[in-house]
Amino acid sequence: MEIIMAFVCGFLFMAAIYLILSRSLLRIIIGTGLLSHGAHLLILTMGSFKGSAPPVLTEGVTDFVDPLPQALILTAIVISFGVTAFFLVLAYRAYQELKTDDMTELKGSDDIE
């Protein structure tokens, strides 16, 4: 199971890097979304899939899943959600002001000598 998940994470990272290296800003943001999916899945995988019961205290169950990675993922999800929301609004504002979403046209440092 861990092997399959490792491949899934690998493909997610691959797709994310491919999208981030593209020219359109929206594709880049989709790439960051895929990247955080990959990272979250990786935490889950690295916590290993031992145990069968959900980590809720129930009578007669001893075979719990490791609860720590789930807490980490929950934290990482809301953080990446906040950052993505900000990033999307920034992309929208940049599109309004600069009239482009092509990263090659967003080259900086024209006012630096």
Binding site: L25, P69, S80, G108
Partner: peptide, 25 residues
């Protein structure tokens, strides 16, 4: 300029944060 440059700043930091999560994992 404040809209153009932060796009790259945020992108770099999103990348490095994702790497941080991976490394911690």
């Amino acid at each position: 300029v404040q809209l153009r440059e932060p796009i790259k700043y945020i992108l770099i930091n999103v990348l490095s944060s994702a790497f941080f999560v991976i490394t911690v994992a």
